[in-house]
Nucleic acid binder design. Structure first.
Lengths: 350, 350
DNA sequence: CTGAAAGCGCTAACAT
DNA sequence: ATGTTAGCGCTTTCAG
């Protein structure tokens, strides 16, 4: 078997195969004015039904395709919705984008995706592109470091509506669809307490973003409401992946005050925790219970299956889409905020 | 804690906050012609260095932003690259798109993503949009049912270059970057044989696409080369997910001729297999070895960790990007084909 | 090196 | 119901 092959066969220099058909071409063929064609094709203004039909038929006959570039230029706006995410690879974002594209397409919008890579400078770059492209609207989840800045606010100057989902700058009064992270963590801790756990730890990423602080707050409150002591050493933070979860679990279990329950802010971290615990002979959930966040399908792959705090992606998608399109259609800015209620999916790790 | 909140605060009707600055504005301020501004800003034509500097400074001072809509219209082409995938959610595609966007951005392109949902009609719709938007180029992975049709060929009429990755229509002579699926399956089977396995099964999705048939062919050839009999009943097919893998594994293990090795065409299926086997007390890999395809991080979550056939995504991304941009820059169609060599990542399931 | 003229394809506004 | 006019912001072409 060959290791790598390439075939070089140049056909011919590309050249205008067939002049692009414009409304003028259609008009000429019919002996009418191109403006009438424009009207007929867009079903606006008044055009005699018969004329309209002739036009549409001729248009398809000639293979006319509207020049969106001209349309957008003329209309000063592309009918493109932009989605800005920190990273497209995690299941949560991939799924959000996938679902969002589906609903956007149904409603006649196209979608451009942008990745900030969690880098604020990149985010600013993207926002610049957004304005240059005159997108119709933006749905964004900010970087981990976009805390007190409000880089998206410049979009207001260009009247480009935007909605935050999942992550927003703190104190932003822009429309947003967030998850009730406080409650998610609170409920998760409570669930572990109900099974008799008393020393519950909290593992976070090293990100400083609001959502993680909300989860921490929920964690603390749940401890308090259950008359459990808050122990500084049971709160640790590190990376983003399984490996990090394993490392952090090791750190926790090496301490004198060992946890019997662990709340991880990401499923992937939670899985790493479980893997470490099992490897060292600790039983899950008998000795230590584990709960993650995100309802990543990956959580079903591990043994026991990971109990997780689910953030309903369909709700977030439809919520942010509605908030965005509402602004676009009304021409009004808005500052609705929606809080999505998380739900615990019980599987085997609690 | 409240269950859901909405705040309604309408600020004011959106209105042109500040007229958009155009090159004419910049020119007027400087008392020169807007064409000179255009030239200076694009670093084309000859403009006196001093003039150029003054222009650039004034432009940033005024907050000039090029109107891409006008540029694209005028240039008859948007500088947008399109990526068409069947589904954005599986790790393989999310990762490909993510990496592709990164490299495209570095090179000054924007990216539009489209999802066909594995539906050929949707794919045709998308292709239509592609032409309407006058994208500069397209990278696509076709639907599972795009076998003998060549829907992308119409792009040639509009001189829009395209490249297939991972999945291409059969016998397509368009440029493409595929994985050597035959070899991937061949090597996987061979690896299991080397550990003493003799009754190796093959689990596929119900998709009829070439890539799965190539894998099947590789599987068969490996059996042959190792003097192992090919048993019809050891080849089964079903869905796409863990559950399907478990169901298929059950079916296989219920047969008289039970496998001692299983090759799954997707990691997620392979994980389902492992979960089923363990649940029924069958040891992996001692009793039955399992290998998947894709190198999905999910494979690390299960126990034992899944051995997998990796298709180098960076190679596919850079390969398809090069092939695409090569066509765009040269103005020539091409029909290079690249075959990416897969590599087995040995973990615990073999 | 800079300016003037022209037009891309489409649509809003006005006129008939 | 249809036609006329004008122009979006930019770049290419040609002139100076």
């Amino acid at each position: 078997m060959e290791s790598s092959r390439e075939h070089f066969i140049f056909i011919h220099k590309l050249e205008p195969a067939k002049a692009n058909i414009t409304i003028k071409d259609v008009a000429r063929e019919l002996g009418i004015h191109h403006v009438t064609v424009s009207r007929a094709l867009r079903d606006t203004g008044s055009v005699k039904k018969e004329t309209r039909d002739r036009i549409k038929q001729k248009a398809t006959e000639l293979g006319y395709k509207p020049n969106r570039l001209a349309q957008n230029f003329r209309n000063k706006r592309s009918n493109v919705l932009a989605v800005v995410v920190p990273d497209l690879r995690p299941y949560f974002f991939a799924r959000f984008v996938s679902d969002f594209m589906e609903i956007a397409k149904e409603q006649g919008y196209s979608v451009m995706i942008f990745q900030s890579g969690e880098k604020p400078e990149m985010e600013k770059d993207i926002i610049n592109s957004l304005m240059e492209y005159r997108v119709s609207g933006v749905v964004a989840s900010v970087t981990k470091d976009t805390l007190h800045e409000h880089p998206f606010d410049v979009l207001k100057e260009d009247n480009i509506p935007f909605v935050f989902f999942d992550r927003a700058p703190e104190d932003s009064c822009a429309p947003q669809v967030l998850v009730d992270n406080f409650k998610g963590a609170y409920d998760a801790v409570t669930a572990m307490v109900k099974t008799g756990k008393k020393r519950i730890a909290y593992i976070s990423t090293h990100y400083q973003h609001q959502i993680f602080r909300d989860r921490l707050a929920g964690y603390k409150q749940a401890l308090k409401d259950n008359n459990l002591p808050f122990k500084e050493e049971l709160v640790v933070q590190g990376g983003f992946f399984m490996k990090d979860g394993a490392d952090l679990a090791q750190k926790l279990m090496a301490q004198e005050y060992r946890p019997d329950g662990i709340l991880a802010v990401r499923d992937e971290i939670g899985i790493g925790v479980i893997k470490y615990l099992k490897k060292t002979g600790i039983r899950v959930p008998e000795d230590v219970a584990v709960i993650g966040f995100d309802n990543d399908p990956m959580g079903i792959a591990c043994e026991p299956e990971l109990t997780t705090v689910q953030q309903s992606i369909p709700s977030m998608v439809s919520g942010s889409f509605e908030l965005l399109v509402g602004q676009i259609k009304s021409g009004m800015p808005a500052n609705h905020k929606r809080l999505i209620q998380p739900k615990i999916i019980f599987r085997g790790s609690v």
